[in-house]
Simulated scan of single mutants.
Amino acid sequence: MLPLMRLLQLASPALPVGAYTYSQGLEWAVESGTVRDEAGTARWIGDLLEWNLARFEAPLLAWLMDAWAGGDDASVAALNADFLASRETDELRAETVQMGYSLVRLLADLDAFSALPGWRTRLLAVDEPAFPAAWSAAAAAWAIPADMAVPAYLWAWLENQVMAAVKAVPLGQSAGQRLLATLGARIPALAAQAAVLPADQWSNFTPGLALASSRHETQYTRLFRS
């Protein structure tokens, strides 16, 4: 049961990496009227889950876990660089770098991670670690199976997006739970697809997200950092 406990810790909104301060463009989608109710929120978050997270970030996370577990630090560095290069705006890049930095600091000081031989040194050697690189290091070090880790990672992202929508749209708490139930039901199939998706088919082509993020950078009033 210990790997499950570690996974719950990694996927918890209590993980002190600042995820709650980001909306990933959702705040601008609300401001512009693109997202204005529960149905619109479900479309926006569901499309990003399927066409962005499940087709790029999730398979990359699985490959990162394999590289960490196999001692292939060169591949870790390459995959981390690929993820940083995929961030299309300053806000999105700053978000993953800040969250990665915060998670690295936490793991480096956490006995449950740093006491494992070699893992602290390997993680600290990564130049400008993005959040998936740091998260996958913890998952691999704690021997969490990838078929559990990837769905949990997607769930944590989904939960953060829904909570951002509850604040920004705004939506009621019951609406938020309906969204989590409906969109969360899609995660097992998307995670299974991500696990076998060849690298030449990875894609994060979501121009709506890029536009929303870039326009959020100059939005007059903001609750969120992205």
Rank of each mutant, 00 (worst) to 15 (best):
R186S: 04
T96R: 07
L26V: 03
D90C: 14
G18L: 06
A185E: 13
L2G: 05
L48G: 03
A146F: 03
R36C: 10
L171C: 04
A108M: 12
F56G: 00
E27H: 04
R215E: 13
L158W: 03
A152E: 01
Y22D: 03
P59Y: 00
E91V: 15
D109Q: 15
L61K: 02
L180K: 12
V162N: 05
A152K: 00
Q98G: 10
A62E: 05
D66L: 14
S102K: 14
D109H: 14
A199G: 09
A14K: 14
A189D: 12
A81H: 08
A185V: 06
L106H: 08
L110A: 11
F56D: 00
L8W: 08
A194L: 08
W28V: 00
A199Y: 09
A11R: 03
F56S: 00
M163N: 14
N160C: 12
A81R: 14
S114G: 06
A29K: 10
S32L: 11
A199W: 11
A130L: 06
L190T: 02
A181E: 15
P188N: 01
Q201Y: 10
L84S: 04
Q177T: 07
L7Q: 00
T96W: 04
L209E: 03
A62L: 08
E57Y: 12
G184C: 07
W135Y: 04
L211I: 14
A112N: 06
G33L: 10
A125L: 13
E217C: 10
N204H: 15
R87L: 09
S203V: 09
A62Y: 03
F131M: 08
V104Q: 10
L84R: 13
R43M: 10
A62F: 02
R43Y: 10
A81S: 10
L60N: 00
Q201C: 10
A112M: 11
S226W: 05
A139D: 06
P3F: 02
A164R: 06
Q9E: 13
L209V: 07
G208E: 12
V150N: 02
L107Q: 01
W155F: 06
P117S: 03
G172P: 09
A146Y: 02
R222V: 06
Y22R: 06
A69R: 14
H216Q: 12
V162Q: 07
N80S: 02
P145R: 05
N52I: 09
L84I: 07
